[in-house]
Design a protein around this nucleic acid. Structure first.
Lengths: 159, 159
DNA sequence: CAATTAATTGATAAAAACTCTCACATTATA
DNA sequence: TATAATGTGAGAGTTTTTATCAATTAATTG
């Protein structure tokens, strides 16, 4: 935890940004909730618990800054809010998500299975891939059996 | 074109909805611009050209209705607006998109290459897949050569 | 160390994209 | 035809995010 904060501090100073108390509070909330995919509002409320004087705009600015420096990723699961997650330092690519259409849970697949497919895209479409996003929508193991007609769930979901 | 309109009319009446003039105008705009991924605002402006009396809310309602009936798909490419595309009648799944981070073009891959990967997800994660979304972000053949530092593009993009 | 400059912040206004409400119009049903 | 149900347009309201700007804090210069 402390090392990660220190590491982020260095990444910021490497680009002439400071790890201000507000930014540090925001980073710590993100680190403490790394499993979840927090929205800006979520982060704001959690940061406020410890630092009530912080402003919403500052949280947005910090998330944007971290995103610009590729320290975190912006995610959009089609529910109207942008969510944020740490970017694995070593990972070349974004990982994949499993979204349950019944309970809304978002699980992760950290393996990258798209290697061969990317090859095909690069050659067949002459497209230079920088990143990719792969999301599966369906029913998670927790909700299995609770859904009678899965086709019904597909309706007006976004993404 | 006319057949497709008729077909959609039947899909609507099958669910006790009518193909009103406003709905028909919206459907025709979508059909005439099937290549593009229009936003609700885009559709509204195009519909207005031919039927100036139509309201924005009606366009939103129609798109929502078509989406509920799985006649069209809602898409989100992370630019803050929901986009819409026809759903191939036969296709089990959504197709894939290639998004150019330089010019913003959205090309399509209509083949479904994820069969083997879906198998793994279903067994390894006990996740029943209903649909999936796969998007590659990178540089399209048109922009090849115009981008010096591709890594720079990755910054604060959403999705 | 004092003064100036720059970076950052909080509060709030504003923008953007939808969504809701409600009176009116159109269509279907009895 | 009367009555009920469905659909529409206009505009108000909501939600999420961005912009503005005065005030604070930190850094730099002399």
């Amino acid at each position: 935890m402390e090392e990660r904060v220190k590491q982020i501090k260095q990444q910021l100073s490497g680009h002439s940004y400071k790890l201000t108390p507000q930014r540090e509070a925001t980073v710590r909330v993100l680190l403490e909730n790394e499993q979840d995919h927090l929205s800006a509002e979520d982060v704001y409320l959690l940061v406020k618990d410890k630092s009530p004087e912080i402003g919403l705009a500052t949280v947005y600015r910090t998330l944007e800054l971290l995103s610009d420096l590729s320290i975190i990723h912006k995610l959009n699961f089609g529910d109207g809010v942008t969510r944020y997650e740490f970017r694995a330092e070593d990972a070349e690519h974004h990982h994949h998500h499993l979204i349950c259409l019944h309970c809304g849970a978002v699980d992760e697949i950290t393996d990258d299975w798209l290697g061969p497919i990317e090859k095909r895209v690069e050659t067949e479409f002459d497209f230079q891939i920088i990143d990719h996003r792969l999301t599966f929508h369906g029913i998670c193991y927790r909700c299995k059996g609770q859904v009678k007609d899965p086709k019904k769930l597909i309706g007006s979901k976004v993404t």
